[in-house]
Design a protein around this nucleic acid. Structure first.
Length: 212
DNA sequence: ATTTAGATCCTCT
DNA sequence: GAGGATCTAAATG
């Protein structure tokens, strides 16, 4: 049974539930020149709604930037930050309920040479280890904001195998968020060297993609 | 090996 | 005008 594109129903659940469910699924990106890039998701973070101080939708503030968070489940929310970085989220829950899952890292599988070029010679382990690196590797920017992952021919997510071990930790870079900073809403595949925050070390290549 | 500073610009107050 | 769901290179121990 080949991997298949995830339907809207898969995403139409709370962010805290979707975030772990996305681990092991495959993020697929088709470039304008038809190059196929893909990788297995190994790290996610849940942004759980209007009460979540760390979320762009905190306090129900609805702005041009976060408009996509209010769209249907399965929509991409891509935002710009720190003057130079893009980050990719999967919108979830119900329409007009602004919850989303930040995809923080993938284990590259297809299109690795293309990713290397775009990442400027970074070590293979770091191609997509961290949300902004991931977006650079996959050429995700504002052009993909609000894309429908259930129908786009440029960006989608396919079913995969859930990792054996999943761990939960506090989210990264949200120290300003009071007690919300301590909630364990970050989910990782335990033991994967492609998870951010782990030490960088050489990684072996294989023709089918980067090894575990 | 770990810490710190600088980059850089969009978004909202 | 301030600050950010980050990354990198340089400085330091």
């Amino acid at each position: 049974m080949p991997d298949q594109r995830l339907p809207r129903d898969f995403f139409a659940i709370p962010a805290a539930d979707l975030a772990p469910n996305l681990l092991g699924t495959r993020l697929v990106r088709i470039l304008d020149d038809a190059t196929r890039l893909s990788g297995v998701i190994v790290e996610t973070e849940a942004y759980v709604g209007v009460n979540d101080r760390a979320s762009h939708a905190f306090n129900a503030r609805r702005t041009p930037r976060n408009e996509a968070m209010y769209a249907d489940a399965g929509t991409a929310y891509v935002y710009f930050t720190y003057g130079m970085h893009w980050c990719f989220n999967v919108v979830c829950a119900r329409t007009n309920v602004p919850e989303a899952v930040l995809v923080r890292a993938i284990r590259p599988v297809q299109g690795i040479d293309s990713m290397r070029t775009r990442r400027g010679g970074a070590p293979d382990l770091d191609l997509a280890r961290g949300p902004a690196r991931l977006c650079q590797a996959l050429a995700i920017d504002r052009a993909l904001n609000a894309a429908d992952l259930t129908s786009s021919d440029r960006l989608w997510i396919e079913s995969g195998q859930r990792p054996g071990k999943i761990a939960r930790t506090p989210r990264i870079g949200v120290a300003y968020a009071g007690h919300w900073a301590r909630r364990r809403l970050r989910f990782i595949e335990v033991g994967s060297p492609f998870v951010s925050g782990t030490k960088s070390k050489p990684v072996a290549l294989s023709r089918r993609g980067l090894a575990r």
